[in-house]
Computed example of a mutant assay.
Amino acid sequence: MNSLDLPKAPEATRVVVAMSGGVDSSVVAALLKREGYDVVGITLQLYDHGAATHRRGACCAGQDIHDARRAAETLGIPHYVLDYEDRFREAVIDRFAESYLQGETPIPCVECNRSIKFRDLLATARDLGADALATGHYVASRRRPDGGRALYRALDPSRDQSYFLYATTPEQLAFLRFPLGERPKDETRALAREFGLSVADKPDSQDICFVPQGRYQDVIARLRPDAVRPGEIVHRDGRVLGRHDGIIGFTVGQRRGLKLSIGEPLYVLRLEPDAARVVVGPREALATSRLRLADLNWLGDAAPAGLGDIPVAVRVRSTREPRPATLSVDPATGGVEISLLAAEDGVSPGQACAIYADDGPRARVLGGGTILRVEDARRAAA
């Protein structure tokens, strides 16, 4: 087996590298090239924001395509730019807008990985005769005793991206490789300097890539201007406290920007799209102890249906560590429910819920789903 766990010599192994123009994927291409693999770089043109994308913290922009091309030239590998704008708009941007209009808080990076990178790009890699598709994600993939591959949290917990990759299927995992999963970020930047890559000190992307100024409301209003309606801001006890210009300006857990003054701190508790209503209340009302999931993707060894309560750990936001919970699947309906051992604040429908075998730093990813419904801690305890 070679270093990618494939039964070929490196020089006989073609690897497509998804090159975003950042330091991580550029180093992946450089490492594989140095090991003698037949490396092909591919960059996806996902959208065009013009000059607005040439700013710190933005990703997937015209400048990034230029940086990816320059890295490929430095390494001496072929590089292709593929126009995926139409499929990205349909699969990611349109769904993102629709989800917000339904009062949800979507995570578009999950859908991009699921629908674009690990479906469409993976198919393109196969068409090119590749034996594997490698990316710069910080997540680990290892062979299981049964010959399949499993997903694990990255070595560097501050960089771990497993939350965004829970929707990867077993078939995709068999073809995917993540060479940075066992490396700390500072080592990646040191390698970039060693390879002479111009992106060695390039800042990491932080924004949603198709929201160049960090204002997703503007994107949604442009895509669906007819669907943005003003409405009331209502206290959970029924009092009307004010009005708003559209629920797309609010997210569950939000405190700032409510423009209310009633002598107590208020937080957005939920959004009611049919009535165009924003419901607010005290912080303690944000506590959630039960989640209902949709679109479960399972990566465990045995299907969870019918196994009763399964001890797991879950992550409801990328910035939070996995927390102990139990998972149960109704064998009759297929409904998936997560019961949290300790309540979480600010959980919203539309968010991703990644499921792990435990809450350890190198835990295995068992899958995840989209949060369909939340239940506050007091109702769950009743």
Rank of each mutant, 00 (worst) to 15 (best):
S318N: 04
S318H: 11
T319M: 06
T319D: 11
R320I: 01
R320M: 08
R320F: 11
E321R: 09
P322S: 05
P322H: 02
P322A: 07
P322W: 01
R323Q: 12
R323K: 11
R323W: 04
R323A: 14
R323F: 03
P324I: 01
P324T: 03
P324G: 05
P324E: 03
L327G: 12
S328I: 00
V329A: 07
D330S: 13
D330L: 05
D330R: 03
P331R: 12
P331L: 06
A332V: 14
A332E: 13
T333P: 01
T333M: 02
T333Q: 02
G334L: 10
G335H: 13
V336Q: 09
V336R: 07
V336E: 04
V336D: 04
E337L: 02
E337K: 12
E337T: 15
E337C: 02
I338K: 14
S339T: 15
S339D: 07
L340T: 12
L341R: 15
L341D: 15
L341S: 10
L341M: 09
A342E: 15
A342L: 14
A343D: 14
A343P: 15
A343I: 05
E344C: 13
E344N: 12
E344A: 15
E344G: 04
D345K: 12
D345A: 14
D345T: 08
D345V: 02
G346T: 03
G346V: 00
V347E: 10
V347P: 08
V347Q: 09
S348H: 04
S348Y: 00
P349C: 08
P349V: 08
G350P: 03
G350D: 03
Q351Y: 03
Q351S: 06
Q351M: 14
A352G: 15
A352M: 05
A352D: 06
C353W: 05
A354V: 02
I355V: 15
Y356D: 04
Y356C: 10
Y356Q: 06
Y356N: 08
A357L: 05
A357W: 00
D358C: 08
P361H: 03
P361K: 06
P361G: 03
R362A: 13
R362H: 13
R362I: 00
A363T: 01
A363G: 06
A363E: 01
A363R: 05
A363L: 05
A363D: 01
L366E: 04
L366T: 09
G367D: 00
G367Y: 04
G367A: 12
G368I: 05
G369A: 14
I371K: 09
L372A: 14
L372Y: 09
R373S: 12
V374C: 14
V374K: 13
E375H: 08
D376T: 10
D376H: 10
D376L: 01
D376M: 01
